[in-house]
């Protein structure tokens, strides 16, 4: 595992320039710049409230940004409406599990694949209005996502019937069913046990080996060291360190950000 490869040949999949999100006086994200090169797993660590989720919100255009520039494949998308991002094949999971209660596991995952069956699919013939209305019964992407997240057997379960860890896997499967080029994961293994975490970590690395670029927010440092190629550390909305995972974790500023916070809380 080496440090971030300098942009030799390819443009970054995602680039942020001086991105800021302010909520009134709260500077949740305050001048973050980063480049994500294709086919690597990037991690973001940082104490609670350091702005990690807000950053993902801004990248996915769900949260209004105060200033800065967003580029996907080198093209600005800072003014593209959030619903268009699925077409760029940007997929995400949320920190709080967000499954639709009235749909079973298969249908919840199918929603991800639905975003790929729109009319702008250049492959094959244009679907009829009826096909577009109904969509396919089960897309291959869904079958694949279910297999990869080991959800086989759960297809007809409803979210309320699943454990928290399994619900999280459905979230990941739904994002995978979008056949993403960039996958953003907000604490995908929170609430999972060690073996489930290892499984997810393995899955993310497999996806990376297939060329999927990922940005992973996690608190579990061991998992981040095992999974990521490159890590950013945030505190109070700003990047305080970046580099190879082991290096970043040993960085005094990073340790202080976490420990200072902890003591401040206990005091």
């Amino acid at each position: 595992m080496s440090a971030q490869p300098v942009e030799r040949t390819s443009t970054p999949v995602l680039e942020l320039r001086d991105l800021a999100v302010h909520f009134g006086g709260v500077r949740a994200v305050d001048g973050v710049s980063m480049k994500l090169m294709p086919g690597l797993i990037y991690g973001i660590i940082g104490p609670n409230g350091s702005g990690k989720s807000t950053l993902l919100g801004a990248i996915t255009r769900l949260t209004r940004m105060t200033r800065g520039e967003l580029l996907f494949d080198g093209a600005s998308y800072a003014h593209v409406p959030p619903s268009r991002l699925a077409r760029l094949r940007v997929a995400r999971t949320f920190q709080m599990v967000r499954l639709l209660p009235d749909l079973n596991v298969r249908a919840n995952i199918q929603i991800g694949a639905d975003s790929r069956t729109t009319s702008d699919d250049r492959t094959g013939s244009r679907p009829s209005w009826f096909e577009r209305l109904r969509g396919p019964a089960v897309s291959p992407a869904v079958v694949d996502a279910i297999r990869r997240t080991r959800l086989g057997g759960f297809e007809s379960y409803y979210p309320s019937e699943l454990s928290y860890g399994t619900q999280r896997r459905v979230e990941v499967a739904r994002a995978l069913a979008m056949d993403p080029r960039l996958l953003l994961l907000d604490e995908p293994t929170a609430g999972m046990n060690q073996s489930e975490r290892a499984e997810i970590s393995g899955l993310l690395r497999d996806l990376r080996d297939e060329g999927l670029t990922q940005l992973l927010v996690e608190h579990d440092v061991q998992m981040m060291m095992d999974t990521c190629d490159y890590v950013f550390a945030m505190n109070s909305g700003q990047l305080i360190a970046e580099g190879e995972p082991g290096e970043v974790v040993r960085n005094p500023a990073v340790q202080e950000a976490y420990l200072g916070r902890k003591w401040g809380r206990d005091a």
């Binding site: 996915t60 769900l62 409406p81 959030p82 619903s83 268009r84 991002l85 929603i111 639905d114 979008m178």
Partner: peptide, 10 residues
């Protein structure tokens, strides 16, 4: 049920 999720699903 979840407009924000809907947006992120395109």
């Amino acid at each position: 049920d979840d407009p924000e999720l809907a947006l992120s699903m395109g």
